[in-house]
Design a protein around this nucleic acid. Structure first.
Length: 526
RNA sequence: GCCCCCAUCGUCUAGCGGCCCAGGACGGAGCCCUCUCAAGGCUCAAACAGGGGUUCGAGUCCCCUUGGGGGCACCA
């Protein structure tokens, strides 16, 4: 009797679960479809890389999915680190990836300016507000003194924090000293006791002991705000609903939350994305390592990827899947699919090693997904780059036969370039088929020539049947006969399918190349 | 050193307590197709870091250990 009881309980539980699940899903569905205002906020200090591209992608997807806005904001408060051309590279990279923004420095918008260096006064005003409300204070300590204090604390193995010298200087006194021209910064007055609870969408609540927090500087002595002040102020003013950023911001996350609270502002949804690790999985990629990748035809920089022959569709698909997934088997996504299917809830908080091999796979997949005219246009520049005398019309004929053989666009000239050559370079040894002698191969070659010469034109339908008959007649393996033909006509051991290739090369050239090959082998056999 | 985060095949990941002796993908091995190379199809090898709990039941929840990562600037 007892045994019969518990399965009943089990089914009861299942029913409960189903019931609850439906309830929860409905609630979530409504919540997530409110239009989101999401910002991508890079600093123009270097090349745009995969990590920032992914953040921008997720930003874009969330904005588009909810019918909200994708905002580009340039975080250039540190003029010392400004790199000429970096901003333009950012814009180019975003455009190339297809992530077009709704508001930004070049486009304007209702919440500008979108370059932080143009918002200096705004930050000063908000910093002052923080001082007056007792949430921040002016600090007159010299960098030299601070340095000494820090070093001593490190020596004593104590957390190297600000020692609080200026923490209790009154606003009046501070103003007097500022009036006298004393150098000063503004520091946030972090609570000394208690805990701060912040909520990350992927990690849930994070509880931090306030005693581990520092009185961070929020305005420098040159009057410019630091990220810690500028970002919260802008996010609030620009009505940002979701902040997606790298997990390197986790340690200062409590500070940012505290600043929002000090102003009495509602906080955005915070999402800290996992970092990308180098392919070995051992740590973040260093500048040096990033440079070294270029030698293998790999790179983490967006502008390089384009030159290496990767296509934006593949980049988007690949990086989308590093830290996000849709289900347990779907992996091929176009940008529009992602807009529809992306979800913050399916993000993965753990760090991900960059896998370039899989990137190649995605690139091949997306290249094969392209239409012939589209692919032709995209490979064209790579022929030009290799100084091959291309013409678009002829190129479009070989595109279909090399398409499934391309891993990157850069492979195209190697694979199809020979059709633009006047001459092919053939060596005698290449012309000798496997398991045949030079004389045998020469004989086969002559037989081939006889057959081809009879044909009014060369294409798959007309040329293949007689060639098959020849193979049969000669008693060699198809691979041997076709191999000789291949080398004679293309000068390569590896080529796209033979008959399609010969059709594009044209009867004239095929015949003359066969003659050349015969001469070459004859010359050697004497 | 201090603080924070993370932990499923080599790698990217599915898994939100029974559907899992753990599914997909890349890569690897093999086979099929085949004029070469691809593409495609099929098959195989390959993982829940360790230890404690909670529970009728744990990859899934909690704790510890270990490992990995990030951060400790008048950078972002």
């Amino acid at each position: 009797m007892e045994v019969v009881r518990w399965p009943l309980c089990y089914w009861e539980l299942v029913l409960w679960k189903v019931f609850l699940h439906i309830g929860i899903e409905n609630k979530d569905g409504d919540e997530s479809m409110k239009p989101a205002r999401v910002r991508f906020a890079p600093s123009p200090t270097g090349h745009m890389h995969l990590g920032s591209a992914r953040t921008a992608l997720y930003d874009y997807l969330l904005a588009k999915q909810t019918g909200g806005q994708f905002i580009l904001r340039i975080e250039d408060t540190d003029q010392k680190r400004y790199v000429e051309g970096a901003e333009q590279e950012l814009l180019d990279g975003l455009h190339w990836l297809g992530l077009d923004w709704d508001e930004g420095p070049d486009k304007g918008g209702a919440f500008g300016p979108y370059r932080q260096s143009e918002r200096k006064e705004i930050y000063q005003q908000y910093a002052r507000q923080l001082v007056e409300s007792g949430h921040a204070f002016y600090c007159f300590c010299t960098p030299e003194r601070l340095q000494t204090v820090r070093e001593e604390k490190i020596r004593n193995k104590v957390q190297a924090k600000y020692d609080g010298t200026c923490r209790n200087i009154s606003v009046e006194e501070a103003d007097r000293r500022i009036q006298n021209g004393e150098n000063h910064v503004v520091r946030f007055k972090t609570p000394k006791t208690g805990t701060t609870i912040v909520h990350d969408h992927l990690r849930g609540d994070i509880v931090v002991d306030n005693s581990t927090l520092d009185d961070y500087i929020i305005v420098k002595s040159d009057g410019l705000a630091l990220y810690h002040l500028a970002a919260p102020v802008d996010d609030h003013l620009m009505k940002i609903t979701h902040v997606l950023r790298g997990s390197e911001w986790l340690p200062t996350f409590p500070l940012h939350s505290l600043i929002h609270k000090a102003f009495g502002w509602e906080e955005p949804v915070w999402v800290h994305l996992s970092v990308f690790l180098k392919p070995s999985g051992k740590g973040k990629m260093s500048k040096r390592e990033a440079m070294d990748l270029a030698k293998d035809g790999k790179s983490i920089f967006i502008k390089d990827l384009r030159e290496l022959g990767y296509i934006p569709e593949a980049v988007v698909n690949w990086i989308a899947l590093m830290g996000w997934s849709y289900d347990d088997h779907t992996e091929f996504f176009l940008l529009d699919d992602l807009i529809e299917k992306f979800s913050l809830d399916k993000l993965n908080p753990s760090p991900a090693a960059i896998n370039f091999t899989k990137f190649d796979h995605f690139n091949g997949l997306h290249i094969r997904n392209l239409s012939i005219p589209d692919l032709t246009k995209r490979i064209y520049p790579f022929f030009v780059e290799k100084r091959i005398n291309v013409d678009l019309e002829k190129l479009e004929k070989i595109t279909p036969i090399i398409q499934e053989r391309l891993q990157t666009l850069d492979d195209a000239p190697d694979l199809g370039g020979f059709i633009f050559d006047e001459e092919v370079e053939v060596t005698a040894s290449e012309l000798v088929a496997k398991n045949t002698t030079r004389l045998e191969s020469l004989n086969i070659l002559k037989e081939i020539y006889q057959v081809i010469k009879q044909l009014p034109q060369i294409n798959h339908e007309i040329a293949e049947p007689p060639m098959r008959e020849l193979v049969e007649k000669l008693g060699y393996k198809p691979g041997q006969v076709f191999g000789i033909l291949r080398v004679a006509v293309t000068g390569k051991m590896v080529s796209p399918p033979l008959f399609e290739t010969m059709e594009i090369i044209g009867r004239e050239k095929v015949i003359s190349r066969l003659q050349d090959a015969i001469k070459l082998l004859e010359g050697l056999s004497e």
